[in-house]
Each structure stands twice: as C-alpha cells, then as structure tokens.
Design a protein around this nucleic acid. Structure first.
Length: 502
RNA sequence: GGUCCUGUGGCCGAGUGGCUAGGCAGAGCUCUGCAAAAGCUUCUACAGCGGUUCGAAUCCGCUCGGGACCUCCA
C-alpha cells in the first residue's frame, strides 16, 4: 500500500491522492441496477469500471468492502405489460407480482455480471430489504426539521437545507456544481408537484395510490420509499457515516447523488463519501445509450449478435476489453466496427500472453540491452498510468508495445541475445497481474475439450506428414477446411503447427 | 434558458507545453511450397481564428460543431 494512487474526485473536480479514512480498510459504494428491465450495454460500463477499481484496490493490499445495491422498489413496469393497476380485477396468480419481475431481472443481471467476470460485491443489499432503515432515516430528517409530510408523502426541504448548510460550506449543489437559484425557473410538471413547498424538494416517502402494488406500512400511511433514500440508508448501514468511495454513472450525479449527500449530511453531520467517482456514458452515434433515447442494445443481444446494427455476436470479454480501451471518464462511442477492432486486438494481446506464460526461452543476454530497457520503461509507465486515475487505456497501449517483442522472440525474429530472462519474467508477471487479476480478463471458453484437442493434433500430424511429402493438396485441404470451421492453423518457423479458434 | 463536458488521422481511442501513444483498417517488404500468423517499414491528426511562450494537441480568449445533466436513467 505504499503505492500512491490518484483519483479524480467529482466533488473537488480534480485529481486527488487517494488516502483511505481507515487504512487498510476501504469502503466503496456503487449504485447498482434498477431491476425493472434487462441490462443493456450502458449498464455494463459502471459495473466493469468499478470492478476494476475494486480489483485494483485489492491488488494494492487494501481490505475493501464493496457494496452495490439492487434497486427493487419503486414504480415498476415490465416491458410490454404493466406490472401494476391490475390489482382490482385479477386474481393474484394471474397478475404479475412485483417481486416476480424483480427476481427475473435480478437473475439476468447476475448472469451478465458473471459473463463479464466481475467479482461479486461484498454486500449486495436490496431496497426492499431495507425499508425499515429507510423509514428510520426519514424520521430522523423530519425530526431535524429538514423534511415535511403532506398527504402521506414526505418531502425533503431543499431550500432549508441549502440555507443552513451553505454556512457549513456544504450547499445543495456542491457535487454537481449547480446553483440552486438557477434551478428555480425549471418548469416541469410532475405528479403531485403541488404538494411540494418548492420544486427542488424531492420525495423521501411516497404515499401509494390504491392501485400501486408495492407498498409498505409507515408512520405516514402505506407507501413506498423515494428514489434517493435507499442508497443513503444502505451505505450508512454497511459502510458507516462516512466512507471512502461512492461510484456510479455521471448521469446519477444530479439529482441522485446530490440528494444522497443532502440526506446523509442532515443525519450524520458529515458528507457521506470522501471520493465521488463517476464513469462517463457509452454513446451510439454520439448519443447516450439510454432507455429514453430508444437506442439500447441489451447484453443478451450483444452476446448473441441479434441486434440489427451488429454484424456478429461479441463475447463478454471483447466488450470488457472494449470498455477498458478507453478511460472511464470519457464517453465511449459504440459501433459494430469499433467492437470488431476490439475483438481482434483482444485476441492478439491474449495470444501474446499465452506465449509469455507457456514458454521460457533460453535468453543469452548478460547485461541490460536496449530491448530490456524498453520493456522496463513500458512496464513502469503502465504502473504509473494505472495509479493515475485508473488509466486502463494507457496500460493496454503499453502492453501492446510489448507484443512485438514477445512475438518476435517466439518467431525468432528477435535474437535471444537481445533480451534477458528477467525481462521475460517481468512481462509474465505484469501480464498476469494486470490482464488477469486487475482487468479481470480471461481466456474465452472455446469449448475445447480434451477430445477435440486430440482430434486437432491428429489432423496437424497428418498435415505435417503431407507437407513433408510435398502433398500440398492434402495439407491445404486440412488447413482450408479447418479454417472454414473456424480453426486457424499457424505454421511456425520451427516446423510446429499451432492453432487458434476464430 | 441554466450548469458542465467535449471536438485528435478512414474508424475507435491515450495524451503530464518540447520525445511521431495504442488498436483496427490500408500500402510495401521479410518469412512461407502457397497462404495465414508473426516481424519490419509506411501514408492520412490534433475544428477554426487569435493570444501567451524560445516552443502549444496540451494554457488563455473568441467563433463554430457535438454531447450530458437540469425528469426515471449506468
């Protein structure tokens, strides 16, 4: 943990040295999915981004508690059919239970996370499992005079909060850089807007209309929690009044995270998180991918290649790699072409890694060569880049510069006298540490079982014999037929033949 | 309208004021029975106009373009 890591803190709008509140422990809260629909590519980004952050902190030796919630309470509808408002006429088994819907999409979400090889969070609390905590928190906010009840709903008094906490240098808008006065003229009609004293006020608890199925008893009548309170209640419960990192997508910065700060600050008299990290959006043709833009590509469509703009399926690792190739705070423009490039690049990198870990050439360099120096410089720079706000793109670029060295050694285009064994070992270690452990990349499961390998080895043997006899008709038939099936044979300098799955 | 981000070569994307990032695609060469793979070489860049500076993709200003948030949103 001697390594200095710098992170961009949205709260201060600059890079800061990461110093945990209680090292070696680190508390990290990331806003999880709303399980009212199937996850799309846009959702993949924060969960992959913060998986890298989690893995990196673990790698540095921190003891991290990673909390990522499941938002399963609220006003839900399933695509195609309304989850609600059927209560009066239909029998219970006929109508869709909210928990049924939530269960379905939670399972799908977990499936996708597994595909991406994301580590499981330490705690994955659900909003519905923490109604009591949320009610308790709301009561405290009311008791302190920062919330008021109207018709069974409770609203947070943003203006009063702003007045009182501006004096403590914690105005409302501190995170998003918004000026409350500028917000006043937003004219937007929302449900029960007239109940609020001010338009900026937000709901802590909503009274449930009769047709609303998701409802819980509360001191204010039957209802359901507001949109922001769950994260405050659950982060407080599992990470304490103040914790280290709060993460999520940039689109949550306002109002969601701004409201979280206000709620938590009222309750705990301290700003909830020290570092706020926000990942940028995935765009498609320059536009944010999002439900309201009608341009989402579901993860299942991506993996299966069934979306119209896709020419082929893309594996979870290709998508993970694609995301890692850009910096998490930049927008990332998605296209079939861009994914194709990533797929090829990923394959090239992983094949080099395979060479690295499966061979130990007999190097003859005795003193540090130019190549040794280059390797050392690239590896060191990669380390710095990772510590500089998680610049995974730069780390990968450096690794790609090592690829020609690795392949050159393998194909005898670089002499064994040009590199020392220790450089090879350092590369082995760096590839393993970064690609596998920190970036969470893994070799694709190519469905090769032992028998298939044996069969391929047999074909390779036959081809070798044919080549020796200059029977090129046979050797080409084997190579071309396998290629058509999707197995690529590669003749190597030493006469061996290796293969990869396309 | 308010707040903020952004504009890099055919495409995607890093870039701490001085050292052609990287990937994919294209071209040439080496290797090869021929290919593929691999290696080497190579062509297209920093939206525009000013300013600061010995020096700017990088800092400042203006203009134009794109985007996000202000409403559920990763």
């Amino acid at each position: 943990m001697t390594k200095e890591v710098f992170v961009y803190n949205s709260l201060s709008r600059k890079k800061e040295l990461f110093t945990p509140l209680h090292a070696p422990f680190v508390g990290m809260y990331v806003c999880g999915p709303t399980v009212s629909g199937e996850s799309h590519l846009g959702h993949a980004r924060p969960f992959i981004t913060f998986d890298i952050v989690y893995r990196y902190l673990l790698h540095l030796g921190y003891k991290v508690r990673y909390v990522r919630n499941i938002t399963d309470a609220g006003h839900f509808e399933e695509e195609g059919r309304a989850a609600e408002d059927k209560i009066s006429s239909k029998a219970q088994l006929e109508r869709l239970e909210p928990m049924e819907l939530v269960q379905k999409y939670t399972n799908l979400f977990h499936w996708a996370m597994l595909q991406f090889n994301n580590l499981e969070p330490s705690i994955e609390p659900t909003a519905t499992g923490h109604i009591v905590e949320q009610i308790t928190m709301i009561q405290r906010i009311i008791a302190d005079g920062f919330a008021y009840e109207v018709n069974g709903s409770v609203y947070f008094d943003v203006h009063k909060y702003h007045q009182v906490f501006s004096e403590k240098n914690m105005p409302y808008g501190i995170l998003s850089g918004r000026n409350l006065e500028d917000q006043l003229d937003t004219t937007r009609e929302l449900d029960n807007q007239d109940e609020k004293r001010n338009k900026n006020d937000f709901a802590l608890w909503k009274n449930a209309p009769p047709e609303h199925i998701m409802r819980w008893p509360s001191p204010w009548g039957e209802g359901f929690p507001g949109w922001h309170i769950e994260c405050s209640a659950m982060s407080n419960k599992y990470l304490g009044k103040q914790f280290d990192i709060h993460g999520g997508g940039m689109d949550l910065q306002f109002p969601h995270h701004e409201c979280e700060i206000a709620q938590s600050t009222v309750c705990n008299h301290v700003t909830p998180a020290k570092y706020w990290l926000h990942n940028n959006m995935i765009t498609i043709n320059g536009k944010k991918m999002g439900k309201s833009y009608n341009n989402v590509i579901k993860l299942s469509e991506l993996f299966a290649g069934t979306h119209p703009i896709l020419q082929q399926p893309y594996s979870p690792m290709t998508i993970r790699f694609f995301i890692l190739q850009s910096h998490y705070r930049s927008t990332l423009d998605f296209s079939n072409e861009a994914l194709q490039a990533s797929e090829k690049a990923y394959k090239r990198l992983m094949e080099a890694y395979q060479v690295l870990r499966s061979t130990t050439p007999a190097f003859t360099a005795t003193t540090a060569t130019e190549t040794d120096k280059k390797v050392a410089a690239l590896l060191q720079d990669a380390e710095h880049s990772m510590a500089d706000d998680f610049n995974t793109a730069k780390v990968l670029a450096n690794f790609f510069e090592l690829v020609p060295i690795i392949n050159g050694i393998k194909h005898q285009q670089i002499a064994l006298s040009e590199l020392s064994g220790s450089s090879w070992q350092q590369m082995q270690q760096a590839f393993d540490t970064y690609l596998i452990q920190i970036f969470g990349l893994q070799f694709e499961a190519n469905a090769h079982n032992g028998k298939l390998n044996d069969v391929l080895e047999l074909l390779i043997d036959i081809r070798k014999e044919a080549k020796q006899k200059k029977d090129f008709v046979t050797s080409d038939k084997i190579r071309n037929s396998l290629s058509a099936i999707g197995v690529q044979l590669k003749d190597e300098k030493d006469g061996n033949i290796s293969y990869t799955f396309l």
